[in-house]
């Protein structure tokens, strides 16, 4: 169920002094079953792009299809689309409103017009998938939960719609290291068990390096490049220029390369770096001895 975007252009506050082109002939294909990360400086158009993906912003110019649904058509079955593409916004816990967690998670499925029994099944399943104990939490007020639990409950509200594509806008914002790691693990497990395609917007390059299959770089409302992280993070100068960075392991790889020591593969995470360096140093010494 790929997303195909062609020449998508969008202008905010059209015909006012504040007019601003947020997207400018953006072209991108999101493949089935991939973990795609979107990176870009503030104002590069990330948020406008993902809001197009479930028609929170309607296509103004350009073409966009999600699976068999044509989003640039005049009429779009929003209910069906929003069941296909689940969107978890930044700080999703701020959208909780119901008296109990179960009721809040049921909000999405209810809006989809599902029968009562089906809703109950989905709510139970979504809460479990998000790593919460259904029986323990279902009748509690979402406002009493801890920060991490709140965020999980909010994500469950989207998961309960059983989207095939899950969009996460900075899911780790504001969390401490443990909370960040947990939420990213949750994203991975949701990809395995519920939503095969995941699109994640992130500012944290170490997280992007660890999880992305491919990374789309946004700049000035267009796609600058789409590459697997191992390739992308070789281009440190380009990313720096866009106000982005590279993960620590990649930075070290680039520094070593500049000093004449090019390790064959760019390591993405500390474990990889340490192992690859040990290999390289060991191998290098061996060769020199021969």
């Amino acid at each position: 169920m790929p997303i195909v975007i062609k020449d998508l252009t969008y202008t905010y506050m059209r015909k006012t002094p504040y007019e601003k082109k947020a997207l400018d002939r953006l072209t991108l294909t999101v493949n089935d079953g991939e973990f795609l990360c979107i990176i870009g400086a503030t104002g590069s158009g990330k948020s406008t792009l993902i809001q197009h993906m479930n028609a929170l912003i309607r296509v103004e110019s350009g073409e966009m299809t999600v699976d068999d649904m044509v989003l640039h058509a005049k009429r779009v079955d929003l209910r069906r689309l929003r069941g296909k593409v689940g969107m978890v916004f930044q700080y999703p816990e701020y959208q909780l409103f119901e008296e109990t967690v179960a009721k809040d998670v049921a909000f999405g499925p209810k809006n989809m017009g599902l029968p009562q029994e089906e809703i109950a099944v989905r709510v139970r399943e979504a809460i479990r998938l998000c790593g919460l104990d259904y029986d323990e939490i279902k009748d509690r007020s979402p406002f009493e939960l801890s920060g991490g639990q709140k965020r999980r409950a909010a994500i469950a509200g989207v998961v309960a719609m059983r989207p095939e594509i899950l969009i996460l806008d900075e899911p780790t914002a504001g969390l401490d290291p443990e909370g960040r790691r947990d939420i990213l693990e949750l994203a991975r497990s949701l990809q395995r068990e519920a939503s095969p395609t995941v699109i994640m917007v992130s500012h944290n390059m170490d997280e992007v390096a660890r999880h992305a299959d491919r990374v789309a770089v946004l700049a000035d409302g267009g796609i600058k490049t789409v590459l697997p992280p191992r390739e992308l993070f070789k281009q440190e100068a380009m990313l720096e220029e866009l106000g982005l960075g590279v993960p620590v392991s990649a930075k070290l790889w680039n520094l070593l390369k500049a000093a004449g020591a090019e390790m064959p593969l760019l390591p993405l995470v500390p474990e990889e770096f340490a192992a690859m360096f040990a290999d390289y140093a060991g191998g290098g010494k061996g060769e020199r001895r021969e």
């Binding site: 170490d206 993960p247 620590v248 392991s249 070290l252 995470v269 500390p270 474990e271 770096f273 340490a274 192992a275 360096f277 040990a278």
Partner: peptide
């Protein structure tokens, strides 16, 4: 990460 790398390198 920068310190984690150093920790792992020390172990290695």
């Amino acid at each position: 990460p920068l310190l984690e790398i150093q920790r792992l390198l020390v172990i290695a």
